[in-house]
């Protein structure tokens, strides 16, 4: 339902109200009370009908917004995986899965890579020591032959190990591909939330219109703001420019040292 439609409805309602109002005035002027009463009843009916229509319109667009919430998959595999997901929380679970898979893959590769780098470093250090002895002419011919053999083996190892380092780094790079998919999913969820929020705001405005028209008065409940620290935690703070949020470890340290830590 478009906004244009909504205006049509409002205009239609206004026209009907005007017609009945004029009729009411005429009836009163002529002293025709039963006609006047009839007009008043019709005015009420127009009001009710426009409210029902508005509620119906909002319900339909909410429903539409929820149904439109789908992800375009790029290939069959993604299509299958994504079509299994009917709602936003499943989608967000999928984000958790993808990021966790990627984090674990990256850590597997890092754990595989680190010993390779430290072994290279150790062997290079050992060879450099012997190389120094050779340059200072402290080496016996038999030791030199041993060093010659080790350098040869080390050069071979550098070639194969740097291939492995390069391969692992490339795989780490590829393991970051989740960002694309999770980004899409999160953007979709965000826009759904925004849409739902918009509709809720409209519903609230409407509810207040209903209150105004029908003259309902509600008890104003002032929600008491509970400021006590929850032991459950609140999750990451997105906006660290807020007064009550620390912007990093330095501020944590300052705060703790001001408390005598």
């Amino acid at each position: 339902m478009s906004e244009l439609n909504r205006e049509d409805i409002t205009e239609e309602v206004a026209d009907e109200l005007k017609e009945h109002a004029t009729g009411l005035k005429e009836a009163l002027d002529q002293g025709n009370i039963s006609e006047a009463m009839q007009r008043i009843a019709e005015l009420g009916e127009v009001r009710d009908r426009s409210l029902y229509r508005e509620v119906g319109r909002l319900t339909r667009s909410l429903h539409e917004a929820l149904r439109n919430f789908e992800i375009k998959a790029e290939n069959r595999e993604q299509q299958e995986e994504l079509s299994k997901m009917a709602d936003a929380s499943d989608r967000l679970d999928y984000v958790v899965q993808l990021t966790s898979r990627s984090a674990n893959k990256t850590m597997d590769l890092v754990e595989d890579t680190m010993p390779v780098a430290s072994n290279l470093r150790e062997e290079a250090n050992a060879i450099r020591e012997d190389w120094g002895r050779l340059r200072r002419r402290e080496m016996k011919p038999s030791e030199f032959r041993e060093l010659y053999r080790r350098i040869d083996a080390f050069l071979d190892r550098i070639v194969s190990d740097s291939d492995r380092l390069h391969g692992n780094l490339s795989e780490i790079l590829l393991a970051q591909d989740f960002q694309d998919l999770t980004g899409q999913v999160i953007q979709r969820v965000t826009s759904l939330v925004k849409e739902v929020e918009d509709h809720l705001v409209k519903l609230m405005v409407m509810a207040s219109d209903v209150d105004r028209i029908t003259g309902l008065v509600h008890d104003q409940e002032e929600g008491s703001q509970e400021d006590a620290v929850s032991s459950r935690g609140e999750g990451p703070q997105i906006d660290d420019s807020q007064q009550d949020v620390v912007s990093g470890q330095d501020e944590v340290d300052d705060l703790l040292s001001s408390l005598g830590f």
């Binding site: 400021d227 620290v229 935690g233 999750g235 990451p236 660290d240 949020v245 705060l255 703790l256 408390l259």
Partner: peptide, 14 residues
């Protein structure tokens, strides 16, 4: 080791 970064929370933990 936490993402909880409100001053009140840090004070409470201390």
């Amino acid at each position: 080791v936490t993402a909880e970064a409100k001053r009140d929370q840090i004070v409470a933990a201390a």
